[in-house]
Design a protein around this nucleic acid. Structure first.
Lengths: 341, 341
DNA sequence: CTGAAAGCGCTTACAG
DNA sequence: CTGAAAGCGCTTACAG
């Protein structure tokens, strides 16, 4: 930077002002400085700038190591684009238990962080609050008031699926809920909120409601199909919340000679287009508004960085996309049971 | 840090030495310093350390914005773990065209970078070389000699699939190759190398070889199935290199009344367990050694950071996993054709 | 509009 | 084994 200043015949302050647009400089000097920069191939040292200004213009999104490999939902790419559109960079920073996060927040490498995979009781939120480090959440804790949250409107999203099934005449519906283990199932808000909303909406509609839980794997979906047939023999429709299991669930039904959607309708709840397109028949599904949520979270974080107070949680509904896996309910559900034997 | 030094009654140099283990300090002073640090809840400022030492202990893996959302392969989680095991952090840094990469490499925020999605002619490699910035590749350029590369051994991996199909009696085999567009198909080494190896291995075995190209989507896989039936009527087996298309391909065949594997055997080439498990029947596949490749790439980068010269490219083969989509070839392939009509 | 100077929080020869 | 001091490459009041 000193070299640039020398070549342009100015002080390094002026160079800094030009780079950051912090202060007015005479157009003529500005041009001299810019010429000098490009002639010297000057690249600003981001680390030094960060140390002096306490701003890196980098924000992070943090998620568990496994989630790094992606679920096909465009959360990360959308967040990265949103960051870039406001002149920031986004990095993805893996963290399982808050240890890496502490290093991230304490170290000054990034200006703020977006948390994914938020749990109802999330120690990371407490940690960041105690460090007074700027953050935003994709998801919600149990009591999200006062926190900058962006989340899926589970209630409205589920209503999309339920109303559609009800309109097709289904009156006995199963929710295949769950997570990788029992503790996860209880700690993730999306899971708990889906189960609650399901029971409430089914009751309101006078429909029979059953909840099964399963893990997030294709194989688990196959097993869930067997349990579905055994434990809910009168059910004519299933809503699957564990996206990887959805394909397995349909496969499991087909293997048992149960036709989809002739015998049983299946809706995949909050999944990606890709996963929904994979099975044969392709799935009717409620699409996660991943792109929008990620963008809104980055925007919320940036408002935070500008010193604005947090607003109320922002909720967005998923969208129903009709595929080949749903159809009218069989008239007499007992007939369906008979067919299955 | 000055506070810590004061409280421990030492100079800040000693504190620095304790934190970094750079120099010997008397156990007694060390203990005093450590006590002072924990009492004060001291967190080292990573940015200041980076500026002074020119080492951040952070490495990046860079990939296109879309690839951020993952393909289910454990590249990123494995790389992150590998980095952590050698006391570094890994961030994921999206980059489409080298512009973001230049900021990353020039800015001093990370010590080195792992490049994914490497093309035969890759401008990012040239850029990093000209900046003299440490990097390692997952993948290979056209001429990778002298570069720190880690890649899938396409030839050996394909032989796994080919030998298995040949042993089942298949003598007319189709490769469904491709990428998101024609330019990609020509520019990605994995694609080009697979096609080349396929033609060579088929010829060596005296088998009939056909290549079809398709895009990386489920829907493209369905269309590819129709083209397979039309353009290669005598073929009894297909190897699919475009992972998302594999499920669609099987679905497309089934829709046309072609049985898998009774009429046609299908192998998915270099995919993840998850994608292979999704279709019904589940796919026989050659698993990408993603975990190993990512780990090796991080190790290669770290050797680079320690000043060691690059070795020759490191190649690792994929592993054949037998699923439900492969079986003996139909005796007379003409019979198969007749069946299909 | 421009510049001299202090300071961001560390590391690391160097001297003791 | 320990400390005083220069320096990493910037930003930013402050004075002119």
């Amino acid at each position: 930077m000193q070299d640039v200043a020398d070549r342009a015949g100015v002080s390094i302050s002026s160079v800094s002002f030009v780079i950051n647009g912090t202060k007015r400089v005479r157009p003529e000097t500005r041009e001299r400085i810019e010429r000098a920069m490009s002639e010297l191939g000057f690249r600003q040292n981001v680390v030094a700038r960060a140390l002096a200004s306490r701003r890196t213009h980098v924000i992070a999104v943090t998620l568990p190591y496994e989630a790094l490999d992606g679920n096909g939902q465009p959360f990360l790419s959308s967040a990265a684009r949103a960051a870039r559109s406001v002149n920031h960079h986004l990095v993805v920073w893996p963290d399982d238990d808050g240890g890496d996060l502490a290093a991230l927040a304490g170290g000054g490498l990034v200006d703020g962080v977006v948390l994914m995979g938020v749990r109802l009781q999330d120690p990371r939120v407490t940690l960041l609050q105690s460090l007074d480090f700027p953050f935003a959440l994709i998801g919600r804790t149990e009591d999200p008031s006062g926190l900058p949250c962006v989340d899926c409107d589970i209630d409205a999203s589920l209503a999309e699926a339920m109303d559609y099934l009800l309109s097709l005449g289904h009156r006995s519906i199963v929710l295949v809920s769950g997570a990788n283990d029992e503790a996860d199932a209880e700690s993730f808000g999306a899971n708990v909120r889906t189960e609650t909303a399901f029971l409430r909406q089914a009751e309101a509609a006078g429909a029979e409601a059953t909840i099964l839980r399963t893990r997030h794997t294709v194989q688990a979906g196959r097993s869930a199909a067997l349990r579905f047939l055994r434990e809910a023999p009168t059910a004519t429709a299933a809503i699957i919340r564990t996206d990887m299991a959805a394909a397995g669930f349909v496969g499991g039904l087909l293997t048992q000679g149960v036709q989809v959607p002739a015998d049983v309708s299946v809706i995949s709840f909050l999944t990606s287009d890709t996963v929904a397109a994979m099975p044969q028949p392709s799935l009717t599904y409620v699409a996660t508004p991943a792109e929008e949520l990620a963008r809104l979270a980055v925007e919320a974080l940036l408002r935070r960085l500008c010193g604005e107070p947090a607003r109320d949680p922002i909720l967005r509904p998923g969208k129903l996309v009709i595929g080949e896996s749903t159809g009218p309910a069989k008239r007499a559900s007992t007939a369906a049971v008979a067919d299955r034997r």
